[in-house]
Amino acid sequence: MLKLDFNKEYLNDFQEEIKFLINSEIRLKIIGCLYNSAASIKQIEDKTSYSYSSILDNINKLEQRKFIYNIDDKFYLYNRTKLKIIHMLNFNKSAKFLRENVEYLNDSLLDINIESTNDLSALEDTKLIKTNNIELFKVIDIFKRSLMGFKYLKGIFPYFHPRHEDIISYWVDNECSVELILPEEVSHAVTDFIKGYLPKSNVKNKDIKLITNDINIEFAFIVSDKCLVLAFYHKTGEFNQHAVLTSTSGEAIQWGLKLFDEYEKLCKNYVYMDDIVFSEDKGV
């Protein structure tokens, strides 16, 4: 059973506070006017289409509820109002992402113990990409592109990519950093491929770290300096090879890095490139 770990006594205050603000367009407009600088009622009237009396009425209500204060007939937002508005707008970004992807997400398994899912606002501009009848391998191609051409790459990947020759040789032959959490079998397959490929390569890169997915993470993502790609398992437990969420925004990439940090902490066994190059015995 999940537990909603929060202060239940605060719930009513929280709901009332937000309801009071978002139930009135004029109050939101007034707060918008005061967001960057103080203003008098006359200045608010000039900036909005509302009458002086409606503005005055709502200014009084906002003042009574301590969202704003008044010095010499100019009205100011309390700092805490400003902070709360920033976070409400942030929640709206998360909500936009969730609303736009509701069907895909409802068909997907979720990992419920990950802190990063508490704020999804960075995913606001994420695009859902699906395979279709003329682009059967669209998702596989997206993964291939995201697994190459980067400076750094981190993530959790669930299978040995069909184009692994191109991908892994890119990792070995280029100065880039790779940190991937892989199922044990895939990790072995990648290690074996690298061992076989080394004699053909002028190895430039020692910065490869393969981590074993020893906690059965049923979720996949790739984050690099270029993009974030998220993929889910179906509720049936099968990996969904036909759809991914992608974003190239800096915020989404930062979110992906935070997500990786959380998962990396949970995993124990890993193998470095040096282990692969110099020793048969070390590693996973």
Partner: peptide
Amino acid sequence: STGYLVTQNLKDL
């Protein structure tokens, strides 16, 4: 799954 994520985000807010 979406309801779960909305609740998590709301709880965080």
